[in-house]
Design a protein around this nucleic acid. Structure first.
Lengths: 234, 234
DNA sequence: AGCGCCTGTCTACGCTGTAGACTTTACCCG
DNA sequence: CGGGTAAAGTCTACAGCGTAGACAGGCGCT
């Protein structure tokens, strides 16, 4: 019994693949955080010798890149959408949700590119950039302007996500209590405003704030660019 | 000779202090990156046993927090500035410069708060928040609106900094070459736009983009809020 | 002079990533 | 079916990490 092959379970010894390795890695990160993702632990989780992982990722760093890619691949982008502003809005909300589902991966998304020149990044992480450029080009933007819009947009988006995650606490009920407790620790003389804001901090509607920011930013960018075009035409 | 006390040099055995430890830590991070900052290495750099550092920081994590604090303490904020938009603009440019001077610290600034509830953060990292709230309050914003503005502003600012640092390469001359080389690696069919943008990517005026984004965002926020106030009054 | 506390040192433990040699397995071809 | 080859997985080992806990030294106070 217990045939060593052809079992559908992970514990049995089906052949590994980059996909299964990365999937398990993501699972582990989601469940226990980035620090829990060690080669040994992941090997154990897969029922394999840790060293076997090196067949599917050159490094631990490459493994982390793979996890980033796996998450970013779940971000749907429709570059042919005729309404570019609406599309950017949707992408933003989708990425926000993705970040909330995989909060432990966000540091990777943000940090890894800092130590990897653009041209050497995993292709999956560059795909959103390319697709958004396509979206903007279809909307009539010159390449350089598209890049400009992309930078402002993506910067704001990532900034918002980081900001929200920094305030985010899992249990919203516990949130306010914990905030009060935490803020109570602060010296009252130096941090009066912050302490007074406890209730406001507890009820943070991230989607709404994101959306309002996007409204301002996107229409502002549009206006700025059309003004610029009009100016250069006259 | 070589009296064991009273020498002004670091190599000699002057008493350690949290300040000297953190200063050396920052120096090390700036010079060789975050990974180079190990307890053993820092101890060696200070001519002390690694374990002595634990008198000045509970943890390696606490050490990293200390470094963040040290950098953020260099950010001047004038909460009494009557022109709140100008002040926010100045802060943004100052923080940007600070980030460019200490790029290896940026991951810390961004990442550490993700794993530390707001109330438990090092006080130094909360100071900018409190001061900006004061600035906005002096400008006439209601507390909740001030928080709103702060979130949009700080989110955009951090997003911009991350974005810029992700494209940043030390030597601007080498930059374009490296970019071309890196982008050349990308499959032409999947990344036509990105590849075509090599020259535009090479000449990134971060200060300008930051400023333009801020103009849009700040005036947008101001308009939105004054409209809101007017609406509720009528 | 003597007590006590603070600083710094030492040793040791369990954990990490990963190089390099090795064994086992899967598959293809005659 | 037999044999050979390339890939997949394993084993051992090493250098480095953070840090607990026991200990030593010196300074300042009484």
């Amino acid at each position: 019994m217990n045939a060593p092959r052809a079992s559908g379970r992970t514990p049995a010894k089906a052949r590994l693949s980059r996909e299964t390795v990365l999937a398990k890695a993501l699972e582990l990160v989601d469940a226990e955080g980035l620090d829990a993702l060690t080669m040994r632990r992941l090997g154990q989780e897969l029922g394999r010798d840790p060293m076997s992982l090196y067949r599917y990722a050159e490094n631990r760093a490459a493994l982390l890149d793979g996890v980033s890619e796996l998450v970013l691949d779940q971000l749907p982008i429709h570059p042919e959408d005729p309404d570019w502003k609406a599309q950017l809005r949707n992408i933003a909300h989708d990425l926000r949700m993705l970040a909330l589902e995989h909060p432990n991966v966000v540091p990777l998304l943000v940090t890894r590119p800092l130590s990897t020149p653009l041209g050497l990044r995993p292709l999956g992480t560059l795909r959103p950039l390319e697709q958004i450029l396509t979206l903007l080009a279809s909307a009539g933007f010159q390449p350089a302007d598209a890049l400009h819009v992309y930078r402002a947009y993506y910067g704001f988006l990532y900034g918002h996500i980081l900001n929200e995650l920094q305030e985010y606490v899992v249990d919203p009920e516990e949130n306010e209590v914990l905030l009060r407790l935490g803020l109570h620790r602060l010296p009252a003389k130096e941090f009066p405003r912050l302490r007074a804001l406890a209730p406001a901090l507890a009820e943070y509607d991230g989607a709404r704030e994101l959306d309002q920011g996007l409204t301002i930013l996107l229409s502002g960018l549009e206006a700025q660019l059309s003004r610029q075009v009009a100016g250069s035409t006259s």
